[in-house]
Amino acid sequence: MSYGTTGGYDDYGQPIPGNLTTIPARIEESYRMVRDQGGQEVSARAVVRMPGDVALENVDKLTLPEGERSIISVRHILGAREVVYTEVYVS
C-alpha cells in the first residue's frame, strides 16, 4: 500500500501532491458507516490498518492494489503508551 502526503496547497487552496511512501498494510473490504472530518455519517468501502503512527490527513490519497482511494477518516489506536497502529477508512 502506498500513500501520498500533501506537499502544500496551491493559490486556489487545492492540495499539491507530495512524497509517495510504501508501507505494509492490512486491507479489509467492508462497508461501514463512519464520521468524516465534518462530522457527517458516510459509508466507507474499506478500512486500512498500518503498523505504528502514520501521519495522514483527510486530503491525502491512498493507493491500494485496486487503485487510488480517498481518505474519509483517520484513527490512531493506542496501546499502553504509544500508537500501536493507524486505522484509515476510505471511500
Rank of each mutant, 00 (worst) to 15 (best):
V88Q: 13
L56T: 05
S30F: 09
I77R: 01
Y3M: 06
R26A: 10
S73E: 15
I71Y: 01
E57M: 15
V47R: 05
D11G: 08
G67N: 01
Q40R: 10
N58K: 13
E57L: 12
Q14T: 12
V34G: 11
G67R: 00
I77F: 05
Y89S: 00
I77S: 02
Y9Q: 10
V34Y: 10
V42W: 07
M1Q: 08
R75M: 12
Q37K: 13
I16F: 09
N19A: 12
M1I: 11
Y85I: 02
S43T: 13
Y12A: 11
R75I: 06
M50P: 06
D11N: 11
G4Y: 04
S2I: 04
M1C: 10
R69S: 00
A80T: 09
Y89W: 06
G8W: 07
E82I: 03
Y9P: 09
I72C: 02
T6C: 15
R69V: 01
V54E: 02
I72Y: 02
N19Y: 09
Q37I: 10
L56H: 05
N19L: 08
E68V: 00
S70T: 01
R32I: 02
G7C: 00
H76A: 03
E29N: 13
I16Y: 10
E66H: 00
S70G: 07
I77P: 00
V83S: 02
N58G: 14
G18E: 08
E68R: 01
R35L: 15
Y12L: 12
M1Y: 11
D36N: 13
T63V: 07
A80G: 06
T21Q: 09
I27N: 08
R26T: 15
Y9W: 13
R75W: 10
P15M: 05
D60R: 07
G8K: 06
S70L: 04
I23Y: 11
V84R: 05
E66T: 01
V90F: 07
A25P: 06
V48P: 09
P17V: 00
D60F: 09
G18D: 09
G79W: 08
I71T: 03
R81Q: 07
A80C: 06
V59F: 14
M50E: 11
V48F: 08
E68A: 05
G67Y: 02
G52H: 04
G39A: 06
S70P: 00
D10P: 10
D53I: 00
P65D: 11
D36G: 02
T5D: 09
M50R: 03
A80R: 12
V54L: 02
V83E: 06
V47Q: 08
G13L: 01
Y9N: 12
V90A: 04
S73L: 10
E57K: 14
T5F: 01
R35F: 15
A44D: 08
A46F: 03
T86F: 02
S43H: 06
R81W: 06
K61A: 11
N19H: 09
G18K: 01
D60T: 07
A55W: 13
S73A: 14
G39P: 10
I72R: 01
S73R: 14
T22E: 11
